[in-house]
Design a protein around this nucleic acid. Structure first.
Ligand SMILES: [Mn+2]
Ligand SMILES: [Mn+2]
Ligand SMILES: [Zn+2]
Ligand SMILES: [Zn+2]
Lengths: 152, 152
DNA sequence: TTAGTAATGAAAATCATTTTCAATAAGATC
DNA sequence: GATCTTATTGAAAATGATTTTCATTACTAA
């Protein structure tokens, strides 16, 4: 499951932008592909570096930023001081989901058993906002905050 | 409108926690109260410092963190490298709202003309999650990401 | 090849946020 | 009021994530 197969969905977006598909970039995507965690840049770097020690942390940062702009990964701030990343479409992995976040210990709960209302609302709102503010909306995030069992 | 009147809604929360209502803390809240911006810690500090030069940046950070825990302010990361804060209940100011964020220039659009579906969905989801994961949910955030007119 | 440009990594620089620590203010107790 | 105890505060130093710089290397296209 680790190989990329010459036609992964994200490769098109690269080429559309004249961005090259390089080893470091593939590796970063691959690592995100093979995890269910919310990884920080240095989490990714540590794994990448084990596989290919020639990769630099700077490149990981740059790649992550680029992937975010391309809409291939989503960047989150859960309040622990470092940005965290997730692949947006992760076939075989986690689907689109939202978050429940403990304000104290920063525990993150993913949830994706969406209610009918949730899907409906996202669709409509996206539509409305996109027209009204002339935005090209590419993604959304919904988070609930509070205190987990242990922290309340 | 600037005075706090001996019974502002947030004062109770302070006392419930044995936290003292001090001049620096009042000032921070007051500043947030009187703006419609998404202020960073140093934005707040600059204003606070003009009014009362004895206040330190550290205290602003500490106060903002505390207010976040108390649910009096909400902390956001819009992707420009610094946290931004908004009063949750701002009588006479902005009501509860959600955000539309440009991934490139970081422009933020507030919106609050909620759809029926939105209110309904938030209520139900919060309820469901709170039970299922034994969380005490105190707040939520909904953000749409994309590219504004100028950046697409 | 050759020229032109994108991508990369190491090291240095930034800069928001946190930690330390000594001084001060506020509350409670007598 | 005098005294004890603890919360709060601010300055300075430390931290740590992210960015910049810059020289080198890898591609691509002609
Ligand atoms: Mn997640
Ligand atoms: Mn806002
Ligand atoms: Zn917790
Ligand atoms: Zn923009």
């Amino acid at each position: 499951m680790r190989g990329r197969g010459r036609g992964a969905w994200w490769q098109d977006r690269f080429e559309n932008m004249g961005a090259r598909i390089t080893a470091p970039r593939e590796l970063v995507i691959d690592i995100l592909h093979n995890t269910d965690d919310h990884m920080s840049a240095s989490d990714v770097y540590i794994q990448a570096h084990q596989i290919n020690p020639s990769i630099g942390l700077t490149t990981v940062y740059r790649t992550l930023e680029m992937l975010t702009q391309l809409g291939i990964v989503q960047k989150f701030d859960f309040g622990d001081g470092k940005a965290r990343f997730e692949l947006v479409n992760n076939p075989g992995g986690k689907k689109h989901h939202h978050h429940l976040i403990c304000l104290r210990c920063k525990t993150i709960v993913d949830y994706s058993e969406f209610l009918e209302e949730e899907l409906e609302f996202v669709r409509k709102t996206q539509n409305k906002l996109s027209k009204k503010h002339n935005f090209q909306i590419t993604d959304h995030a919904i988070s609930f905050y509070g205190f987990c069992e242990r922290c309340r």
